[in-house]
Design a protein around this nucleic acid. Structure first.
Lengths: 240, 240
DNA sequence: ACATCTGGTGTACGCCGTACACCTGCCTTC
DNA sequence: GAAGGCAGGTGTACGGCGTACACCAGATGT
């Protein structure tokens, strides 16, 4: 036995490799499939090995979010004539990054730790408002007002709640359900119909999220610009 | 042995009782403490007994959210002179209900099923826009724009991530951390200082969430009113 | 009187995160 | 080149989770 049949020689783990594998796993099997055990299996390693690279599962998730945030385009230096288009581009870039990873929205929402990546992104955004002539005070409040839109998403109010499996109801049962819905929730039906130009068959198809996102974003950005021009200040009482 | 020592005679379970107990448990111990097993224990019953009243844990969570939604004041019939104050009151009532149950925000965010309670609330809100002169089209988009504010909250961007336990760093270590923070995230520091009227000691204290909520809400409502007056229409291409 | 139904029980399975002790092979230091 | 330390992968084990499934007791309808 000259050489003992090529000992496997796995490339060693690293925090980087663990996080990338976790992202890949989440991309293809959903965030629910990301367990320490399953991730370890994908890496050809025993579960506890991961703990040499991430403190616990929370840190794993934080790291995954950081990786997604890393995909956001850095702000182009002073290339824009006005703050609105600069902020808009940045947020839409964040949105693209998040949409690339369907699990990212939920992961971001569930995280509470602010990693350097998170802080860095928020800081650069605040800097863009500052450069656009916003006071720190107003910047603070407009960032709150943007809310989750800062991360490139806003809640999908009307989305279909995933309806896989299930045997499927009979047509007449569906009809009855639809009739009851129309009676009980007339206004929802009305706006749903408006969204499909009056075609009832299209109602289930969900919304154009990109449009909704930009609509809300623009309402907010327009409002912000108006406030800035008016020299808005929160002028809050020091008490409370 | 006349009577056998008062057989406990528990009041029987019911969906109502299960859900109320779950809400109570979440109120006092956090949503993380709500497991089927622990909830059963609180009710003096074996875990599987719960499944006679709720299909699974998801349905339990949905039911808990419904209970919170039930606390929202019903809309006062036509008492308001304009749609803005009517919607505003409703949303602030929703906010009060959600704030009464600290876990509700996260629970609502994580739910995907739209129960009748959820649909009913959304429908009545859409109806208020309709009554205020909004087209169905515009109503649809403004509800998207409101996003989670519909439920009485918006993301708490800057909140402290719960910092219990921990031995507490030395003052000079804190100082060093603060200095590095100021260097790396100057804009965040700036807006944080603005929020405390320049007092660095108050920076950790978090934001006035009520103020932030109403600020964003008003920016959005003002923008909505402007669009309505302009006769805005999405005029979307039928394709896509 | 008996059958049926409603609701609580007991056991068991497979998953999860992770504490802790252990081992192994490389790097440093003499 | 031997000794020691240490970074990183291993194995076992524990307690918790959701819930499938078989069972059973008492109330109810006939």
């Amino acid at each position: 036995m000259a050489q003992q049949a090529e000992p496997p020689r796995r490339t060693p783990l690293s925090r980087e490799r663990v996080l990338r594998a976790a992202v890949a796993l989440a991309d293809e099997a959903g965030i629910g499939a990301v367990s320490m055990r399953r991730l370890a299996q994908h890496l050809g390693v025993v579960p506890m090995a991961l703990y040499k690279h991430v403190a616990d599962k929370d840190e794993l998730l934080d790291g995954m979010v950081d990786l997604v945030l890393g995909e956001i385009d850095p702000p182009l230096p002073a290339s824009d004539v006005n703050w609105q288009s600069a902020v808009r581009k940045r947020l839409l870039s964040a949105r693209r990054a998040v949409l690339r990873h369907p699990w990212a929205r939920q992961a971001i929402e569930s995280r509470t730790r602010r990693t350097p990546a998170v802080l860095g992104y928020m800081d650069s955004l605040a800097g863009m408002f500052h450069a656009g002539g916003f006071t720190a005070d107003l910047t603070h409040h407009v960032m709150h007002a943007l809310g989750n839109r800062i991360w490139g998403f806003s809640p999908e109010l009307f989305d279909e709640p995933r309806d896989d499996d299930a045997p499927g109801p009979t047509p007449e049962a569906q009809e009855a359900v639809a009739r009851e819905f129309a009676e009980r929730y007339p206004h929802i039906l009305e706006i749903a119909l408006a969204a499909t130009a009056g075609d009832p068959a299209g109602v289930g198809r969900g919304c154009d999220e990109q449009f909704e996102y930009e609509f809300a974003l623009d309402v907010l950005l327009d409002g912000f610009e108006r406030l800035r021009r008016e020299g808005w200040s929160s002028r809050r009482e020091p008490s409370r």
